[in-house]
Write a protein that binds this DNA or RNA. Sequence first.
DNA 1: CGGTTTGTTGAGGGCCATCAAGTTGAGTGG
DNA 2: CCACTCAACTTGATGGCCCTCAACAAACCG
Lengths: 208, 208
Amino acid sequence: MKSGLGKEPLRRFRRHEHLALGGEAQDRVYRLDEGWACRYTLLPDGRRQITALYLPGDVCEPQWVISSKAELSIVALTDVIATEIPLGSIRNASDEGVSELIDALMTNFNRQSDWIVSLGRRSANGRITALFAEIYSRLQQNGRVRQPCTIPLTQQDIADVVGLTPVHVNRVVSELRRQGLVQFSGKTIIVPRPDEIDRQQDGMGLAG
Amino acid sequence: MKSGLGKEPLRRFRRHEHLALGGEAQDRVYRLDEGWACRYTLLPDGRRQITALYLPGDVCEPQWVISSKAELSIVALTDVIATEIPLGSIRNASDEGVSELIDALMTNFNRQSDWIVSLGRRSANGRITALFAEIYSRLQQNGRVRQPCTIPLTQQDIADVVGLTPVHVNRVVSELRRQGLVQFSGKTIIVPRPDEIDRQQDGMGLAG
DNA sequence: CGGTTTGTTGAGGGCCATCAAGTTGAGTGG
DNA sequence: CCACTCAACTTGATGGCCCTCAACAAACCG
């Protein structure tokens, strides 16, 4: 384990390492400097549903400022470098730190509402293209867009976000590649023209 | 419950009347004294996805305290009687009013995460029984359970919550009735033994 | 009492899950 | 440098859940 002596607030997590466990008290939040993480729920039969994605530049999780408790577990989807922000350091400090986190909390809240719409009413194709478009948009807002937009998620990870099986995710993503809407670099997915992906998601029919 | 009777204005909404429109500024929240409401999104083709249910006793919507703006529209699902709570009256008042709303906000946040799990990983049967169990549990917490628990939603409303078609909701609900898990009084659904419904939802397979 | 909303039921089909084999590639140790 | 291992990706066959279309019944309402 890394024990940053001195005042170094950086924390490293390996892929599959937990940033928080469901039920745990939290006295800090993390700002992801590099790497991706997610909040998830496990079902009794072992299947997983991811309920929030955390991208480079995101704060994880803003609501800990209010509740000081992790309702669900958070796990690293890639190797992660994060800045630890103790809650005590911002509760009494300027309002700016808090209001930035409150803004992030509301953004996450609204994003969850949007995702309910996708899961409830969009087909596999619509959910996956909507996810890619959302990822690009968020990376752009965080100032983390490289040329072009790369997505370091496994197809299993994607399946657990969009509520599908990895097999079907593979078929949909393969079709997107055939159409030139995404490319592959090894196993990582690249979205060359995010605006075209974005146009894809409108008019996608009912799932099922 | 709030005991300061009399001075706060009561508002009435008819079924299908809007409590708020998406994008509108909000300078108040509502406490539903009677009736049900929901937050929803319309898709370009006219389909609807409900992203939050508001039951008697609920506050609608707590996040307006923070953002003073309705992101999405709110509509009455039944006739509604609501108490109007001006935001100005609680921002400067005791912290209790605010913290009660913040609690409600976090509850809604966590409920949305749970609902993402249902939509992503549960079958039609699991989603509907989970909805009924959630409704009973929330009514109980609000002190609004009559004997027995009645649900004044149309099957179309239920479909728009659980992300299915009304036709299929009808089939699932009819099967639940055949099993004695729900009863009908005219068109309103009654859940006689909510604990049994609750047991139903575990182990429901993948949707699709 | 005519129109509208809501519920009900059947037939057929499509989307996606499931099952089952592979193939590929990265990491490891000999 | 090459077996070995394991995770991740790929592909085909089959089937079930749920959508779609359609028609009708029942309840509600002005």
